[in-house]
């Protein structure tokens, strides 16, 4: 984590570098060229197999960076652990569970589906349903408030659709839409 600290030219950088560990971590993420994985024994998993697991995990140090793509030394080590666990015969799900146990749910990039965290998963669904019901209810109120007026409009609509084939009708619609819209412009 020392790379940024060397940039003492302006105090700003030093302070920032120290104050924002995650940013620092990230910069180093992008910084370290990781030497290609050390010579490995024959039965080790392929890079593809490791990345398939890493792809579903997130770096606990740098927000939102996927583990298969993070070049932070810590992430490189985590991928090594994945390799070791794969060699030991662990499944993808097992490895993911172990990572959650070690680093917390942050490595999954989403809240675990347990306990109070269910609320977070329920929130969008509840909000959508509540919003839709509320909107439907409001619209129903608006439609009811208007009982006398629509007779004429719907009559016009009916007669128009009755002659649906009439192209002139469509042109009239285009022009009417045009008139209605463009004059507002």
């Amino acid at each position: 984590m020392d790379q940024l600290i060397e940039f003492d030219l302006a105090d700003r950088r030093k302070r920032e570098g120290r104050r924002r560990p995650l940013v620092v971590a990230l910069l180093i993420c992008l910084a370290l060229i990781v030497p290609v994985a050390q010579a490995q024994e024959a039965p080790t998993p392929t890079l593809d197999q490791i990345q398939t697991v890493a792809r579903e995990l997130y770096c606990p140090l740098c927000n939102g960076v996927r583990l298969d793509n993070c070049e932070l030394q810590a992430c490189v080590q985590m991928r090594q652990v994945i390799a070791e666990r794969l060699t030991a015969g662990a499944s993808k799900e097992q490895i993911k569970q172990e990572f959650v146990a070690q680093y917390g749910p942050i490595v999954l990039g989403e809240p675990p589906r347990e306990g109070l965290n269910w609320l977070i998963w329920a929130l969008p669904v509840v909000a959508l349903i509540a919003g839709a019901i509320w909107l439907l209810w409001t619209l129903r109120g608006w439609t009811k408030a208007q009982t006398a007026a629509p007779a004429a409009a719907s009559a016009a609509d009916q007669s128009a659709s009755g002659r649906a084939a009439g192209q002139a009708e469509y042109l009239a619609q285009v022009d009417a839409d045009l008139a209605g819209l463009e004059e507002l412009d």
Partner: peptide, 16 residues
């Protein structure tokens, strides 16, 4: 330091 609890408690900003 599992899940960085002590790290956070001390407000560590970077290592070391």
């Amino acid at each position: 330091d599992i899940q960085g609890r002590i790290y956070n408690a001390y407000g560590v900003q970077g290592l070391p």
